[in-house]
Design a protein around this nucleic acid. Structure first.
Lengths: 167, 167
DNA sequence: CCTTGACCTTCCCACCATGGGAAGCCCCAC
DNA sequence: GTGGGGCTTCCCATGGTGGGAAGGTCAAGG
C-alpha cells in the first residue's frame, strides 16, 4: 500500500504520456508538482497516474492543454455543474467540425481536380492549372481556361481557429 | 510594361500572402530572392505575384511548404509528367482523409458522451467519467467502473499519422 | 533643401505540443 | 565501490504564423 510511488519512466509507461510531456505538464502548471525522492527524482502516486491518464485521454480526444486545464479543474470540483463540462465538450466538437469541414473542402477540390488529370507522361495538368489560376474555392467541374476571377477579393483570412484551416 | 514591379506590401495585398510570409518563403528558398531597389526594398514583378498566388492557393488546399516546393518545381518544369502532380495531390488527399477520420472519431465520441450528459446543475457527468476511466486500450487499465458507455466508434490513438491525430 | 510619415529592412521572440540530445547526478545490484 | 541504466536540467528544432523593436528609404509637402 505505501510503496505506490513510481518514477517518471514507469509513470510514462503506465499512462502512455512520455516522460518529456509529464515534466512539461508540471512545468506549465497543468499538473501539480510531483513528489521527489531525496535525490531529486520525481515520484508518482496512483492518484497522479490517474490524472495523467485523464490528460492522455483528453489529448486523444483533441482537447488543447488549455481545455484540459479547465477539465481538470472541473474534475476536481465536486460541486461542478455538468453543464459546464458539457459546454466545454460541445464547444470543442464545434471546433472539430469546423476543421473537418475545412479539410473536407480541400480534399473534395483536390479529388475533383485529380479526377480530371490525365496522370500520364504528358505535362497537361488541371491541378497545376488551378493552382496557377489562384481563384477562391469552388469545385466547379470543367473550367473555362479564361483567366476569369477578378481575384482581388481578400479571402477570409482564417475561417478557422488554427492557421489557415488545418495543420 | 516594364513598370510592373511593386513593393512587398503591395504584393501582400495583391496576393493575400502576408509580407512576413513572403520574406519567410524567400528565406527558406521556397521562392527565388526578389529583386531589390537601390535602397534595398524588395520588388515583385507580375511573374512573382503569380508565383505568390500559386503558393497561396496551395496553402489554402492544405499542402505543406515542402509539398509546395515540389509543386512549384513541377509547375516550372515544362516537361513534367502530370502523373507526378497527380500523385502528390492524391497523397495529400490521403493525408487529409486520415486526419478527417481522426477528427471525426473524436467528435463522435464526444457527441455521444455529451448526449448522455445531463448538462444541468448536478455534478454527474459521463464525459468526466470517461476521461477519468481512460479506457481506450490503455495498457494495464483495469477497472470498469460504471457508465463505461459501450461506445461504438473505435478510434485508435497510437495509430494516427501525426502526433496523436491532430494538434 | 529638409521634414514628415508611411513604408521598408533585419533581427529576435512567441505560439502549440512534442521530440532529441548533451552534461551531469542518482540508485541499485553486484 | 563500480558500472550502467535511469533520472535531472537545459537548450534546440519542428511548422507556419504573428508581433514588435530599431533603424533605413522613399516620396510628398513645405
Amino acid at each position: 500500500m505505501s510503496a505506490g510511488a513510481v518514477t517518471i519512466g514507469e509513470a510514462a509507461r503506465a499512462t502512455g504520456v512520455s516522460a518529456k510531456m509529464i515534466r512539461y505538464y508540471e512545468e506549465t502548471g497543468l499538473l501539480a508538482p510531483a513528489g521527489r525522492t531525496a535525490g531529486g527524482y520525481r515520484l508518482y502516486t496512483a492518484a497522479d497516474l490517474h490524472a495523467l491518464r485523464f490528460v492522455r485521454r483528453a489529448r486523444d480526444l483533441g482537447f488543447t492543454l488549455e481545455d484540459i486545464r479547465a477539465l481538470l479543474a472541473l474534475w476536481h470540483d465536486r460541486a461542478r455543474a455538468s453543464a459546464q463540462v458539457r459546454r466545454l465538450a460541445l464547444d470543442h466538437v464545434a471546433d472539430l467540425r469546423r476543421r473537418i469541414d475545412a479539410l473536407e473542402g480541400m480534399a473534395r477540390i483536390l479529388e475533383d481536380l485529380a479526377a480530371h488529370c490525365g496522370g500520364d507522361a504528358r505535362p497537361d495538368c488541371p491541378i497545376l492549372d488551378d493552382l496557377a489560376a489562384g481563384r477562391p474555392d469552388a469545385p466547379s467541374g470543367p473550367q473555362d481556361a479564361s483567366a476569369a476571377t477578378p481575384r482581388q477579393g481578400e479571402h477570409d483570412p482564417e475561417a478557422s481557429p488554427s492557421p489557415r484551416g488545418e495543420r
